[in-house]
Design a protein around this nucleic acid. Sequence first.
DNA 1: ATGTCGATCGTCT
DNA 2: GACGATCGACATT
Length: 197
Amino acid sequence: MDHKILQPVHQSFFNQPTLQLAEELLGSFLVHETPNGLLVGKIVETEAYLGADDRAAHSFNNRRTKRTEIMFHEAGFAYVYTMHTHHLFNIVTGRANQPEAVLIRGIEPMIGEDVMLENRPVSKRANLTSGPGKLTKAMGIDKSYYGNRLWEKPLYIAVGERPQEIMIGNRIGIPNAKEAVAYPYRFWISNNPFVSR
DNA sequence: ATGTCGATCGTCT
DNA sequence: GACGATCGACATT
């Protein structure tokens, strides 16, 4: 992989409908320039959370708290929150006061896999970044990145290649979200081993 | 391959 | 005080 193609997207990249962006992000790169080296993963699985009308979203009913505050900003900021002992990484989408986001659920290691393995030692390669809590650990993303601009270094999105085949289905881990359980807001690259399931 | 269960802690009520 | 947008271990089929 050629490092030179890794340029942060323009901020306007994030200004598209959330469902469209969740799909568009598949095949794009998540890039983190760390003191230990360049870490790059291809995004292979995402989920959209549509804010006020989506019972599964933290911002359902426009619930605005210290945690969800960043979701009410314009698109392109990082929303990182703690789930049990894990950090989950989201990209804020939608316009200001339209609290939507895309959760990154799986990435395929492209550059810096050795450092990722130091961050998160595993025996099976496919277990390194195949889940939202796994990939943040491997990529060195924690809550200190809350609110970071994802069109600037050191943590950013870079354009990649369009995937061959995309699958769409229900989101994972939201059994109590009533009608929202059935919403087809999950996107993944067909047959990629770094999809969480 | 699938299911259940416990860890563990910040956030919100 | 209750509750997870999870993970890993262990059990069972």
